[in-house]
Nucleic acid binder design. Sequence first.
DNA 1: GCTAAAAATTCAAACGTTTGAATTTTGGGC
DNA 2: GCCCAAAATTCAAACGTTTGAATTTTTAGC
Lengths: 347, 347
Amino acid sequence: MGKRVTIVEVARETGLDNSTVSLALRGDRRIAEQTRLRVADVARRMNYVPNQLASALSSGRSRVIGVMLPGMENQFFAPHLEEFQAAAEQSKNAIAIKFCDWDPQRELAGLLQFCENRVDGVIWCPAGGSNEQLKATVEKLHAARMPFVILGGPSKMGHLVGMSEFSALKLGADYLVGLGHRRIGIATATRVPGLRGELHRNRLQRLRDALLAVGARVDAADIFETGDNEYGGVEFAIPLRERPAAERPTAIYAADDMLARAVVMGLRVAEIGVPSGMSVLGFDDAPRDASGPVPITSVSLEARGNGRAAIALLLDVIAGKIPPSPFRTIRLSPKIVERASCTGIPK
Amino acid sequence: MGKRVTIVEVARETGLDNSTVSLALRGDRRIAEQTRLRVADVARRMNYVPNQLASALSSGRSRVIGVMLPGMENQFFAPHLEEFQAAAEQSKNAIAIKFCDWDPQRELAGLLQFCENRVDGVIWCPAGGSNEQLKATVEKLHAARMPFVILGGPSKMGHLVGMSEFSALKLGADYLVGLGHRRIGIATATRVPGLRGELHRNRLQRLRDALLAVGARVDAADIFETGDNEYGGVEFAIPLRERPAAERPTAIYAADDMLARAVVMGLRVAEIGVPSGMSVLGFDDAPRDASGPVPITSVSLEARGNGRAAIALLLDVIAGKIPPSPFRTIRLSPKIVERASCTGIPK
DNA sequence: GCTAAAAATTCAAACGTTTGAATTTTGGGC
DNA sequence: GCCCAAAATTCAAACGTTTGAATTTTTAGC
């Protein structure tokens, strides 16, 4: 099995110097157009494949950006990923993805691997873990002089692209009240095992606070908590049907879009129309929620914008356009994505 | 900003030679234990981070395995990925993931990037595309001398870890008939847009063939096709309830596990018990289907086993233990994962 | 044709490891 | 103390690029 062809072989074949070939292949305009074309041609004919490793070692830029995500079992990160990919591609960078499965241990290990791989920088969506663990990890990154941007984590530890959950929750509450709703129910998946449950348990209080803050009425009987990841909506739709319409909330604010779908489904089963009989507002706009029986109106945390902002920021850090400190913080505003599951209430 | 510390600095600090340090850090037993410890200690204190790029360039092994997947919008690949990760970790390799979003163009580009990155080998789950496209891509990989293993694609193009869908479908059919079911319904999501719909359209015919082949009765009225990704089960549960029990199938074979869940859900709404009133068999065992209101019995394509086999095969190819030809083919047998959604029929 | 400037190409030293061969050190047997 | 083998360490040449400086070639002006 013959060896792979390198720049040296191409140089020999064309009768030029290594460096000329190197420059030519990268389209440096010091090299005459004619030469450039000839080199490109010979390289193609010889099946030359550039060795990124050598290039990276020599130039000190690997043109790879590491992305550390907690997991992929929910599609929350899908739009982020797509955006990373697109933004990186534009700047001729590649993306290397690692999942740590919500394990801070593996998260740290993965980030260190990124350092060893000499990626140019890292986008890091922290999996949680204790504050000390976070700090220790940040420390390691700094020690390795690895540029990084935290996406959606705590502030004060590095450059940050943040998503302020509370202001987003409040935006949704505002929206419902603005439509005329007063009595508003909350749907959460607090009893689901694992991370989603934990997230919802934390979110429930804030969701309630957000609603109260804008003057809505939230009865204890209108707070629903399910333990079923997929069909939880049915659990509370049935009892809801039993109540006379006057004793029901006029809108339900779901703690995430998956649940909003389940709620819509449950209401369909209970023969309560959406949005005619009940408005349903989602949270964390997942793009696919544009489809389905009733397209769901939702509060968007602006995943795509955040993804793009994170890459842009990171590239600036890598390029040295941004000093290591003070840390930059970027916060995009959440938005209401109006679809068909919410409607106004006559006064 | 100081430069990163390299092996040379560590060597200077310890008063040893580069190569001694290099060997010591990798635990080569040519180096005295005492020296090894001292080197490790100094390296740690100096915050030394090995440069994988240099190592890979010098040794010719990057210890990275590229994984090219069509997409991640369904969780079909999740167990594969987990298994790749685990198997690679065991052999001290890292995994680099790329998604091509079902676009053969991007698939080719991504694979070429893997070649440039000098990953040691590639696991490739083809996104489809025309046969010529596939051939061209395979050609490129061979030209770049990149070891690769195809997972779940067409044979005769390279080493292959295959999943024979038909034999798996038939296994499921056998199982139901073995339980005593004769009249069996089919649930598919053929009307869903995108890839899943296409997959189901292709699968429907084979599913029917598999059932007929084992002597089951499949009435046209018992073939259900939905266009709803999540709650499709309800669509046909209601009409099913209208029919007298004698005119219903006694089991439903769903074309994937997501749909099997939806069917169970639909039957719950229709107040038909599972499995007391109706058995439901899934396909493509997704691990999370162990949970839920009725844990679903399913035909497993052995994703984890396939994932492990693919990595093992690839590592052998990389190590040169397996000649480039003839191509090896590994086919794991599908299995029935018995949970609670299927039961026998008294004769 | 000469000269200076511009354009094109080449030189040579990195980049940070690995590795097989060569050299030095150590320790045991006598 | 000497010799030999074994153990430990060092040497030096890769690996395939990049890059700033140096050199050669071309072009244009006169």
